[in-house]
Design a protein around this nucleic acid. Structure first.
Lengths: 344, 344
DNA sequence: GGGGATAGGGCATACGTATACGCATACTAT
DNA sequence: ATAGTATGCGTATACGTATGCCCTATCCCC
């Protein structure tokens, strides 16, 4: 077994054996139609035989195309190392698969918003574009995003799709999802529906979900009670705290719509400790449909985001931008998964 | 705001403004000591001013070093898209951070073992080395791994550290961890300890954990009862099934050591349905310390793997290999996290 | 049979950086 | 003073591929 058969073969080696010039090899392997079928097949056979692979660096250098995108997770400043949002992790899987299908490589990085990611990736020709992921407060970064657009950096971010967003955003239909959840809880006879999650404009996705809930209430002639909205970020602890706060406030409620499954799970824990039965006393609906949702007790009714669709759309939208094509729709419909926690 | 200031500056542009030659710019920015301090600082200032970034493709092409590693997750053939092992996801975070610290880029991919990953990454000069991750059955791939070694491909895999492994392996001290768990259960007075998890050589990590348990039993003069070992892969469903199987077999047991937290959580569900109290009737110890372990009811006693250490070591070991340095130790100690489920 | 069109492929070169060498200048040692 | 040694930098070139341009051989049609 040859240790190192003689370092890696280049397109010149292939060309030599095939009796053609190096550019012909390049053209053949890239599928250019100005190479005859016979020649191409000969070249392909030789390439396979020699275990030849196109050198990505040379290829990218010459073509100015890396065939790579960078995925940036933005962490909350205070985030624990271990607490990566399961929702994003699931999306990672979808994105990865989608990239693999398209023959595109994926660079990944967890970043503080403060770091100079655009320099690190796009500017260095490392990646053709960026996918920005994180329930972050993008309003803090408007300036930077504006700069990116100005520089011609290609990027797509996940979040709340709005007309005045900087750059291109892909996201679930959070407003519609909030309505779905609200309607469902109303349908099962609940009237005092609390919302656990940030509802201000620094968390546009959560705000949309809340607004959707309010819309559903409004459609049935019920006014949303501000006392029933309690801030919560996105983890289990926060859900627990928010629910306790709600309980202690003395507000009357017979349902909770949580902005994420983790919040919902934390809330259920708090309700249990307070002796409130779920769904008997309080119906609970979550958001995301993370794996744990189905295993929670009681199993959690939740809004499912279509992760596969999300991954596909993020990648497709980004590539469309890079290749200067028309961009597809950017809002993804959601689906309500009814389980025991809402008492349906 | 300039749309495109005049495409990207190159090292020649910097050189021109600094009144030096291009190679000097390269040397200065790479920190070569054959550039005077004054010159370097001048160059650095200009580079910053022009927003210059080294073109990674050109750099890698010339230096034959990508400063990139590829992380490959291997999926079980039947794996669901959404069921990425939480343990690996957590490790992903650690690896990512470690790479960021070292200024190394990370490519990521989920693969079937069948695919030709080595071609795709290392052979194409896309990455300097590979990290192989997955509770997979590597014995099936010995041939391929042998081929990799023969080709001089750099890789490190996560798993059971043994002398006869092909390539370099980094992993937790599963044998020691199994002993820890066993000793703990013995210490709290249990004697019939069941093991849920594959114990055959196709799953070396699980086998080590089982063997560690047997060793702990042996040290107290107790023989391991083969009837108390039930196969389970690594997810919650499998743990549930395995526990039911164990219950139905009529075997007597007062403790369960599960090869993973997910198995343990599934087992607790099955025990609950069967009316066996945890830890009253059955003490349970899991493995991994995934986030859900602390939130389980009862909170799960488990073996914590040091993920940060794991990520660091994987990266360091791989780079040591790439750079032809001595490789560090490859076994990582574990720690027992005692919670309620073991009745301590 | 001549003029165009087309297919097939070679030639030259560019992509932007890193590095082996060589050459000056300055500084040390004898 | 003179050989010897750093120091600091320029010259030339290589890394391996993709692509614009040009050339030849067909082939076709009127």
């Amino acid at each position: 077994m040859g240790r190192k058969p003689s370092s890696k073969p280049t397109s010149f080696d292939i060309a030599y054996r095939a009796g053609v010039s190096q550019p012909t090899v390049s053209r053949a392997l890239r599928g250019s139609k100005s190479v005859s079928l016979a020649t191409r097949q000969r070249i392909e056979a030789i390439a396979r035989e020699l275990n030849y692979t196109v050198d990505k660096n040379a290829s990218s250098l010459r073509s100015q195309r890396a065939n790579t995108i960078a995925l940036l997770f933005f962490e909350e400043p205070g985030a624990e190392e271990s607490t990566i949002n399961p929702f994003f992790l699931a999306m990672l899987g979808a994105i990865t698969r989608q990239c693999a299908n398209r023959g595109i490589d994926l660079l990944i990085s967890f970043q503080k918003m403060e770091d100079d990611w655009h320099v690190r990736y796009q500017d260095s020709h490392r990646a053709d574009g960026l996918i920005l992921l994180g329930y972050g407060d993008y309003t803090l970064y408007e300036q930077r995003l504006t700069g990116l657009v100005g520089q011609g950096t290609h990027f797509v971010r996940w979040g709340s799709v709005r007309d005045d967003n900087i750059g291109v955003t892909v996201g679930s239909d959070n407003l519609g999802a909030g309505r779905l959840a609200g309607q469902h809880l109303l349908d099962v006879g609940r009237r005092q529906i609390a919302f656990l999650g940030q509802a201000d404009e620094h968390y546009p996705e959560f705000a949309d979900r809340y607004n959707g809930l309010c819309a559903a209430l409004g459609e049935r002639g019920i006014a949303a009670d501000p006392a029933l909205q309690v801030n919560a970020y996105t983890n289990e602890e926060d859900g627990y705290r928010a629910a306790r706060q709600l309980l202690q406030s003395g507000a009357v409620f017979d349902a909770i719509f949580a902005a994420s499954d983790l919040i919902a799970i934390g809330a259920i824990r708090a309700l249990g400790e307070a002796g409130r039965a779920v769904p008997g006393d309080v119906a609970v609906v979550g958001f995301d449909d993370i794996p744990a949702a189905g295993h929670a007790s009681p199993p959690l009714t939740t809004v499912m985001q279509d992760l596969k669709r999300a991954g596909d759309l993020l990648v497709e939208t980004l590539l469309a931008q890079v290749e200067d094509r028309d961009q597809p729709e950017q809002t993804i419909p959601t689906r309500l998964i009814v389980r025991k926690s809402s008492g349906a």
